[in-house]
Write a protein that binds this DNA or RNA. Sequence first.
DNA 1: AGTGTATCCTGCAGGC
DNA 2: TGCCTGCAGGATACAC
Length: 278
Amino acid sequence: MPELPEVETVVRGLAPELPGRTIRWIEVLRPDLLRVPASVFEESLTGCLIRHVSRRGKNIVITGDDGRVLLVNLGMTGRLLLSSPATVVDSAAHLGVRFDLGGGYELLFDDVRRFGALESLDPAEWAKRELGLGIEPLSTELDADRLHALLSRSKAPIRSWLLDQRKLAGVGNIYANEALFRSGIHPRRTARSVNPADSRRLLDALRTVLTAAISAGGTTLRDYRGADGRPGEYRPMLRVYGRTAEPCFDCGSAIERTVIANRSAFHCPTCQPSGLEN
DNA sequence: AGTGTATCCTGCAGGC
DNA sequence: TGCCTGCAGGATACAC
């Protein structure tokens, strides 16, 4: 599911509500969402005073007063919902973990497919984990030159490169395909074939798409919801993702679906030449 | 070392 | 109606 804009939307929904609240108790209904025994998870977080909510890549980072981090990855179908006295959530059909925050507030992790994960990390573990994540695409530390330098080291298909969280953190299949369309780059071209001018356009396209999607509250294909339970509204703005055989908005050619590394890729055969024609 | 493939899991759409 | 196949916003253990 959830890529950077969706996770950012969840974080923005939780950030005004969670800090200052304490995790009173935790109920684990689906232990396979954790990487440690439920008792260990519960013990490490019960009593934790929440200080801060942020995002790193596709991860929701909930930091406690002692620096401990509750790291939430939504996987494909995960939802992190805030139930409050004013807005009671009763739609969690696949509830996995429930955090009681007192005062009628509950943080609910709901996940149909259970590809999501919740982890409790001490500051050192979190610092180590974060080192493994690539640069944030919206960070000012990333510019076209740096992106080009990173791309030039890989002969992986550019679509695969964009999905690799160790290189760039937060981009998933929807926005990778959308950004490649907008920058006129065929998804199967090698990363190192992307020249400086391409890199400039790709970075601009990534930022345009991610920023617009955040403004729309993300893209809901089926399962995604914000912390308030509302779907995202970016779907109608998608230009290639899920539009197999439909006309390209720019040139009218039929959008093609191919498979790269076991995952669908969508592109316009006219607007995104493979570079292998001649 | 750096890639692509297969797998985890459930639900839904489409074909017959 | 019902069965079957394929497909889905992700991450990761493997084989090459």
